[in-house]
Design a protein around this nucleic acid. Structure first.
Lengths: 201, 201
DNA sequence: CATAAACGATACGATGCGTATCGATAATAA
DNA sequence: TTATTATCGATACGCATCGTATCGTTTATG
């Protein structure tokens, strides 16, 4: 049962306006990057009044966060039937694939930059972006410990800091590409270390 | 031989003004964080005209970068006589010690945030902050490979991404503290993996 | 004494955030 | 039908800040 719009009095929000804003925001991040990203620019490109944006999102950062949540596919970081190593590789490949899109990487970079100014946004980023991923990763590693694929004495928190940290580090500091080769090397390096060296079946 | 000020014509730059600006900037980053950091605020607190700041630094980001370079101690990440593991631990402890200072961590967070807007600054950050540290780390790991302390088949680049990435990740996303416990766990996790498990002498 | 550059003070243009106000429009409720 | 209510686009505003320009003053060199 999809909850009906609740039928409040007054003119309802135009769903098309909502989508137009997100589309325009994405396009602007593609073309101009974070430096050229502004609410007023989004309004202009969406053919929408600035008011209509601020009616939906309380701040620039909130819009960026929604922009991230919007394009979010269900996490591949789950202990399906696959081996833990395969699940990790799949997650990394999916992440890398997404980050090849300039709009997407700009969204994330902008979100973090904005969060440095805005403690409330920083909290939201942790709660909606960082922690869910860490929870997935933690669950996967614990699953691997049960199956024997992961050593018992691995420091899970630090391992997650290594993997996610490497991605954010490359994304935000830009010293090297976040690409397929990177994904492969991370997986290899990780499992050369935390793996239990089981013979491949 | 310290190169004398070159004795150009005209009134020389006041060295005290220079220091007053850096001190005020540091203080402002302590008190107000990145959100409250502005060139005009620095000028006010330094008792200096805004002009005198822009005469020395072309942009806000350039000032932040100099603020970082200013407090920079010589890197502890060097293959002195010590074991590689000890050198790593020393570097991490030094880093953590510095990042406990709010002004210092604000400087770095602000620098990265600013660099997301400013490609020229991003380049400078890579050249002056990121790459020198990576070069130190790389040298240390290669040294360890020669002494047998580090396995030969370790992926150095990815290892550096893990270690530095974990630090930046915690610093910028703020999901967990960058403290002594973190430093210890990183060292342990790292050498549990890349170490050659030599018996301790 | 002439030249040249830094100094503080101040004003300025340009952006961009987020708020406020407007009449018009599209829905519900009586 | 009519009253109410919320959204719509448009526009103006206050505010902060960046970075530039200008000016008279000060401190150095030649």
């Amino acid at each position: 049962m999809t909850t009906k719009p609740a039928a409040r009095p007054g003119r309802p929000r135009d769903e098309a306006t909502h989508r137009a804003i997100l589309r325009a925001a994405n396009r602007l991040l593609h073309e101009a990057g974070y430096g050229g990203f502004s609410i007023e620019g989004v309004a202009l490109r969406a053919g929408v009044a600035k008011t209509s944006i601020y009616r939906r999102w309380p701040s620039k950062g909130a819009l960026l966060l929604d922009l991230y949540m919007e394009g979010l596919a269900p996490a591949a970081l789950e202990p399906s039937g696959k081996k833990v190593r395969q699940a990790f590789a799949a997650y990394l490949n999916q992440t890398v694939e997404r980050l090849k899109d300039a709009g997407w990487s700009n969204t994330l970079r902008s979100l973090v930059a904005e969060a440095q100014n805005d403690p409330a946004l920083a909290r939201l980023v942790r709660d909606k972006v960082i922690e869910p991923r860490r929870a997935d990763g933690r669950r996967l590693l614990e699953h691997g410990m049960k199956t024997g694929e992961i050593r018992k004495n691995v420091d899970i928190d630090i391992t997650l800091d290594f993997v996610f940290g490497a991605i954010w580090y490359r994304l935000l500091l830009g010293h090297a590409a976040v690409d397929e080769a990177f994904a492969r090397r991370v997986t290899t390096a990780l499992f050369k270390r935390i793996g239990n060296d089981l013979p491949m079946p």
